Structure formats: C-alpha cells, structure tokens
Simulated assay, not measured.
Amino acid sequence: MKRLLPRVLMAPAVLTLFLWMIVPLLMTIYFSVIRYNLMQPDQSGFVGLENFEYFVTDPSFSTAVINTLLLLGWVIVITVVVGIAIALLTDEPFPGRNIVRILLISPFFIMPTVNALLWKHMMMNPIYGVLAQVWAFFGAAPVDWLTDFPLFSIIVIVSWQWLPFATLIFVTALQSMNREQLEASRMDGANYLQQLRYLYIPHLGRSVAVVVMIEMIFLLSVFAEIYTTTGGGPGDASTNVAFLIFKQALLGFDAGVASAGALFAVVLANVAAVFLIRMVGKNLDK
C-alpha cells in the first residue's frame, strides 16, 4: 500500500503530461496522411505518403536542410569556443568579476524576438546601425547584412543569444577545477597552453558535451530570429526546416504537408538527440 500510494498520487500528473504529448503527436500523424488544405476544403481524403513526398521534393527542402545544419554547426562551434574563452578569462579573481559575469549571462534572458529586433535595427541596419557607423568611421561602405549575408547574420544573432548559456555552464564547471593540481603544474614548469591542453580542456569535456546536446536540440527549431529579420530570404537563403514548415502551414495553408514536415523535424531531432545522448554518456563514463 505504501508503495502504491505515491504512484496513485503521481498518476494524474503523468497522465496529463502523456496526453499533452501524445494528443498533438497523433493529430500531426493524422493530418500528415490526409489532404487538408485550408484553401481547398472540398478536397480531402487519405493520401498516404503523398504529403511527405511533396514536402521532401519542395524546391526549398534541400536548401532548408543545408541551412539548418550550417546554422546548427556554426552556432555550436562559436558558442563552445568563445564560451570557453570567456569562462577562462573570468575564472581568475579581479575587481568587479561578479558584475561582469552577470552582464555576460544577461543576453540569455532576452526573448528571441526581442534579440532579433535588437540586431536588426540597432546593430545591422545599413543606415543607422552600430555596424554601419563603425564602417563609416573607417571610410568603408556600410553593409546590408540581412540582405547580403542573411544566413551569416542569423548565425551571429543566434550565437549571441546562446553564448551566455554556454559561458554559464563553463564558468560553473571551472569552479570545481582542482586548484592544487594547477599550482603543482605551474611549479613543474607547465605554461598556460600546456595547462589548457592537459588540464582545462579535459576538465571541461563533460560540460562541452552537455552544451552541444542541449543546443543541438533547441537550435533545430530556430524560428523567431528568422521570421523577425529575414523572413527566410532573400529567396531561401536563410530558410531552415522550421521556417519551411511555417511556410507550408501558414503561407501555403497546407496543414497536411506542414504536418508531414513537422514529423520529419521530430525524426531529425530524435536522431540528433539519440546520437548526442550516447556521446554524452561515453563522455561521462570517462
């Protein structure tokens, strides 16, 4: 009875969570195998895998997948490398270190839409943006970043948003660093680069694995930054899988194809998650 009571008390929460996940999934699967275009309500019925075929043969599909992988890879590389560098710079005590750390992690608490608007109007605007003023100061022509380099601009915007998260994880990990081991290495004549290679990087291995896993899962669904700044353009230059699903759902009014795309994104996210969980597990076993 004592063992059964906790399970009974937890059952409503578990059941609610299960329904919250399974009902949308079942509805998505249902809509993915029927013809359901809001502009053509009279045309409906079971179509099997036709929606999936239509989604993967969309002219924008290959570009969207490539952009998703480029965005994912570059943001992870930037946040991990720069995050480790910032964490190491702020690891040693100095006046105002706590204030600096708070300022470093503050961008993570900004909403993605606000972050995108900040970069679009304050930083990357070709007329009055900060970058345009810097270019003009050095006598160079201002760059319309969101038009000329759309995907690069999105990478910068998303990296700035996620860099504080990576920095916070690495700063926390460095707090458990064995200071006596560092002092012993200095006494043995090890320079900073040797300490970085043989002490700091191995110590941060688990933290890097966790950062990569969490960021990969969330970055597969980047949408607000693209919608707010480039709208997926010019053309498909900054369209990722999430934005392609949006175009099919709300711009094409085709709920069936959009549902098929959503299932593709779910499969992609789960494959990435399984791969990364195994990677993290191996790292934690070391």
Score class of each variant (00 low, 15 high):
209 A>P: 08
186 R>C: 06
260 A>T: 02
232 G>F: 13
260 A>H: 06
248 Q>Y: 12
189 G>C: 04
215 E>N: 09
236 D>Y: 14
200 Y>L: 07
213 M>K: 02
259 S>R: 12
187 M>G: 03
230 T>H: 03
193 L>E: 09
196 L>C: 08
237 A>W: 03
225 E>C: 01
188 D>N: 04
200 Y>Q: 02
196 L>M: 14
196 L>R: 13
209 A>W: 05
266 V>D: 05
213 M>W: 05
194 Q>W: 06
262 A>R: 03
234 P>W: 09
186 R>N: 11
241 V>L: 15
243 F>W: 09
252 G>M: 06
232 G>W: 11
226 I>L: 06
235 G>A: 14
192 Y>T: 11
181 Q>K: 09
212 V>E: 01
194 Q>G: 08
233 G>E: 11
259 S>K: 11
212 V>L: 02
243 F>L: 01
193 L>F: 14
210 V>H: 01
229 T>Y: 07
267 V>E: 12
212 V>G: 00
222 V>E: 01
257 V>D: 07
254 D>H: 11
265 A>P: 09
185 S>T: 13
265 A>V: 14
197 R>K: 14
209 A>H: 08
230 T>G: 05
262 A>N: 07
252 G>Y: 11
251 L>Q: 14
252 G>C: 10
204 L>W: 03
229 T>F: 04
184 A>T: 10
254 D>S: 08
196 L>S: 11
214 I>P: 00
202 P>K: 04
219 L>R: 03
190 A>C: 07
239 T>D: 10
207 S>L: 09
255 A>L: 15
184 A>D: 08
267 V>A: 15
250 L>S: 11
219 L>A: 01
247 K>V: 00
216 M>P: 00
